[in-house]
Simulated assay, not measured.
Amino acid sequence: MASVREAVLARRSAPKVTDVAPDDATIIELLVAAERVPDHAALRPWRVIALRGAARSRLGAALAEASGLTGDAASRLAAKPERAPLLLAIVATSTPHPKVPQWEQDAAAAGVAHLLSLLLDEAGWGVMWRTGPYTRHALVAAMHGLGANEHLLGWLYVGGVPEGARAARTGLPPAPRFSSLD
């Protein structure tokens, strides 16, 4: 088993995945671990919704309608949720609390999403956190059945890793954004 540091350094987004995906039991098992994020007042200000099959098409339709696009542009946008066999919608749920502002609750929900993406990657699944200009549109929220106290942080697109896709990580060289004050 890799250390946390090794898992973090090995993680990479998988923009292309195969049609296999983890089942709900596997997602729940990983979510139990991901939910160990700092959570002031134990509010658990998140939930995760699995979108498979036709639910991905309904999301695509909601995105296209929210965009106001027509024709090929709407069709391309509507097809985006079909890029992976499983989308995990990350929902931030806020609870009025005198000591825990909404931004802190959103940060806890984002922490769950990030840990879940790390755990999925470490388990051998391809995963990519995706958002877009319509993530918080009312039509997209309605498609997910969100309440008045909820909003989407995005979706983890999850699927199998294509053969040969685990190449060495490339991109910007490490440059920690760090400073120290005395």
Rank of each mutant, 00 (worst) to 15 (best):
L69E: 04
R130W: 11
L156Q: 05
P96F: 13
D106S: 11
A167L: 06
E104A: 13
W155M: 08
H97L: 08
T26P: 02
P162Y: 02
A84E: 04
T93F: 01
R47F: 06
Y157N: 02
Y134K: 09
D24G: 13
R56G: 05
S57Q: 14
H114M: 07
T135C: 14
A165N: 01
V158W: 02
G124K: 04
P81W: 07
L115S: 06
S75M: 12
L172H: 13
A54S: 15
L152F: 13
L51W: 08
G126I: 03
A7H: 00
D39M: 11
L153E: 08
K16C: 03
R52M: 14
R12C: 02
R5G: 00
L51V: 10
S117A: 09
R177P: 04
A148G: 13
A41H: 12
E82M: 12
D19C: 01
G60Y: 10
E82H: 10
A167W: 03
A175L: 08
D23P: 12
A107G: 09
A41Y: 09
T26I: 04
L51T: 09
I27H: 05
A84C: 05
A14F: 07
R44S: 10
D39K: 07
L30F: 02
W46I: 10
A123K: 01
A168K: 11
I28Y: 05
A7K: 00
P101A: 14
L172Y: 10
A61E: 15
V91G: 12
V48C: 08
V32N: 07
M143G: 09
L115D: 02
I90H: 08
W155R: 05
E6C: 00
A107V: 10
G132L: 10
L119I: 00
E150D: 12
H114V: 04
G147W: 15
D24V: 11
A21F: 06
E122Q: 01
R76S: 08
A110R: 12
R11K: 00
L86W: 06
V158H: 03
H151Y: 14
T70M: 02
P96G: 13
D23H: 06
R5I: 00
